[in-house]
Amino acid sequence: MAVGAHGTGRTGGANGTGETGDRECSGCGGGEATTPWAELAAEMRRIKCATELSYGKLAQRTHYSRSSWERFLNQKQLPTRVAVEEFAAAAGTDPRPLLLRLERSLAHETAARAAAAAHERVRGREPVLVPVIPVPRRASGRPELGRPLGLIAAGALVGGGLVGVLSRAARKSR
């Protein structure tokens, strides 16, 4: 059998025209997955290609539409637990690895939303002023490195003050 696009080992669809129900098996090549959600979508696309499932076939075998599968597999919408389980059943694979990735994705998305919300709460207020600590310079213009402990202590004080201001702001917004 000739190897088709993306190394799937297929040369065409059921009708012999080279079509598989989708225009092409997009995303089968191992793209750079940087977040848990991207890893989940990449793994689901890999399984979809390996099992030669089109979005239409997924829609026929599950309770989700063709467009839902397109959104899930192209990272436009995070799939539900039920969708991942139905996907695994349709593909004939174990759902547990996909469900673990889904749980990591949900945790990552929740943390990202919380961080964004905290940033928005603080952003609307006056900016926090950070004092500038002068660094002693040598005659050559390079910084004097004889007092690193003092600089570390000053940095810790400034950082501690910033943490205090941010935690008070977070408590007030609750």
Rank of each mutant, 00 (worst) to 15 (best):
A2F: 02
I47M: 00
E70V: 01
T80H: 02
E70W: 10
E85Q: 14
P97S: 06
A154V: 09
Q77C: 07
K57Y: 00
E52H: 11
G21Y: 09
K76A: 06
R147Y: 10
R96G: 09
L100S: 10
F72I: 05
E39V: 12
R174L: 07
L53S: 10
V165C: 02
G31C: 04
E85W: 00
E32Y: 03
P136N: 05
T20I: 13
A59M: 07
A153K: 15
R81T: 13
A90C: 12
A90H: 09
A33D: 06
G12L: 09
W69R: 05
A90R: 04
A154D: 14
V132I: 15
H63Q: 14
G31F: 01
R46N: 10
G124W: 07
T62F: 05
E103V: 07
G21P: 07
M44R: 00
I152Q: 09
A38P: 02
R46L: 05
R61C: 02
G159V: 00
A33N: 09
G4E: 01
K48P: 04
L99F: 04
G31P: 00
Y64V: 05
L99A: 10
R46K: 13
L78H: 01
P127S: 13
A118N: 06
L157D: 03
N15M: 08
R81L: 07
P127D: 11
A116P: 00
K57R: 14
A33K: 12
A153Q: 13
Y64I: 02
L73T: 14
A89I: 08
S26N: 04
A139P: 12
K76E: 13
L129T: 15
R168Y: 09
I47K: 01
L98K: 08
Q75Y: 01
G7A: 12
S173G: 08
S68R: 10
A153I: 12
T17G: 07
E19G: 09
I152L: 13
G30L: 04
L102Q: 04
G161D: 07
E120P: 00
W69I: 08
I152E: 05
R45I: 14
L40I: 01
S68K: 08
G7T: 03
R61T: 11
P143R: 08
H108Q: 07
R147G: 07
V3R: 03
R171W: 02
T93R: 06
G160V: 12
E39L: 15
C49F: 02
V128A: 06
A89K: 15
L166C: 06
G164S: 11
R123M: 08
A38R: 10
